[in-house]
Computed example of a mutant assay.
Amino acid sequence: MASLSDPDRRGLVNEAGFVLFSKLIEYKQKVARAKASDIVKYAFNEAANYVYGINDAENHSAFNLVEKREAIVIAGRLHNLFRPLKADKKVLVGPKFRGSGLISNCVGDVLVEQEALYEIKSGDRKTRSVDYRQLAIYAALIFAETGGVVKNISVVNPRTGVIVSVPTEDFSKEVSGQSAVSLFHSLVEAFSANLISL
């Protein structure tokens, strides 16, 4: 989807699309048009709080028709991807990960049971290595908390329609030459290392 929105507001539109998706995935039935309008307003308000901060959100939460349409398309594409999975699996939007050592508590985008971890990147760019580093940190935090290894890590760009999914074991072997358990154990140790010298 080519963006017609102001590039300076694209981050807001992308975030509003994700917030809208996170609300829509909660509903079991089609949302009435009047309620949908309220949800779109809510999504832009929440996105403005996140992107611009609570103190400046009021100045940025208004949206135009182009921005509204783009956010709805982003939300719709994400909904179409994750809704079928929700029929027989637990789809968690905004999973919270307990921090470890230097890494603070953080929130991911989508976790489907312990099977797949998704990072949503809605920009007009290709997938970058930093996206997978972020997923590796989240996966290591899951490992630190549960001892389990998520099976796949994926970057989804609903704006471009690209999904890049990699089995976690393959990713681990490619980037470190180790199994996923060994890589995540090493990462957790690095997070928790006492780096302060006296």
Rank of each mutant, 00 (worst) to 15 (best):
M1G: 13
L4C: 04
S5I: 08
P7C: 02
L12Q: 07
V13H: 11
E15W: 08
E15G: 05
F18R: 14
F18W: 14
L20S: 05
I25V: 10
K30E: 10
A32R: 14
K35Q: 15
D38H: 13
D38S: 12
I39V: 15
K41E: 13
Y42P: 12
Y42T: 06
A43G: 11
A47Y: 05
N49P: 04
Y50R: 15
D56M: 02
S61A: 13
A62T: 13
A62P: 10
N64P: 12
N64S: 05
L65F: 08
L65Y: 12
V66A: 13
K68E: 03
E70L: 09
I74Y: 14
R77P: 11
L81V: 15
P84A: 04
L85H: 14
K86Q: 09
K89R: 14
L92K: 09
F97N: 04
R98E: 09
S104L: 14
N105P: 10
C106H: 03
G108M: 03
V110H: 02
L111C: 03
Q114S: 02
E115K: 03
L117P: 00
K121D: 00
G123M: 07
D124P: 00
S129V: 05
V130G: 07
Y132V: 06
R133W: 10
L135Q: 02
A136C: 08
I137N: 04
A139P: 02
A140I: 01
F143S: 06
F143H: 06
A144C: 02
A144H: 15
G147W: 01
G148I: 00
G148L: 02
I153N: 01
I153Y: 07
V155G: 11
V155D: 08
V156H: 08
P158L: 06
T160N: 11
V162R: 14
S165E: 12
T168L: 00
E169V: 01
K173V: 12
K173G: 05
K173S: 00
E174K: 05
S176W: 08
Q178H: 05
Q178Y: 01
Q178P: 03
S179F: 00
V181N: 01
L183Y: 01
F184H: 02
H185E: 15
E189W: 05
A190G: 05
F191W: 11
L195A: 15
S197E: 09
S197L: 14
